[in-house]
Amino acid sequence: MLFCFYAAAIICLVITQTVIMASIPFFDSFYDILIPFIIYLGLFRSLRESLPVVLLCGFFIDGLSGGSFGLYSTTYIWLYICCKCVIRFFHAENRFILFVAVVLGVILQNAMFFGIFFILEPDGRQDIYIINFFQSQVICAFITGPFLLAGFKQVFTILDRRLYSERS
């Protein structure tokens, strides 16, 4: 059941990102909605359960994206590592962390993209469009990020309850 749930979740998130959000003009500059999902997995789920999911998310998005293969996997894995490091020092339920986690995730992803583009194409032109895009992503993450995290938490609570009742 857990496997089916994760497969469905990945497909839904990838389709939402590449088809549904792409067809709505407002969501053109929305952030990567897999970020809150990866953050949730990093903060609340075990390594054995969540790491394959993180790798699969990266694999699918890399395949559909025009960037170098592995770019999204890289950002997701580092984001995941950061989350695992954070929960060594802070409690995962800390409200402040939940409030800023998605914003920090979006900043980390964009910073990694900037850094990787700078290393791979030092003479590439990064114009004002990317800055505006980054700004709107951060604003969207600030407004909607905590709600998405709370949503994932709610869904996983229901899932855990069902799994527990199945086992017992």
């Binding site: 990838v14 590449t18 088809v19 792409a22 053109d28 990567d32 559909l64 994206s65 895009f133």
Partner: peptide
């Protein structure tokens, strides 16, 4: 039928 997941890249399916 689909567009790139990010505005960083410009691809379609």
């Amino acid at each position: 039928i689909g567009k790139d997941p990010s505005a960083w890249f410009q691809t379609i399916i």
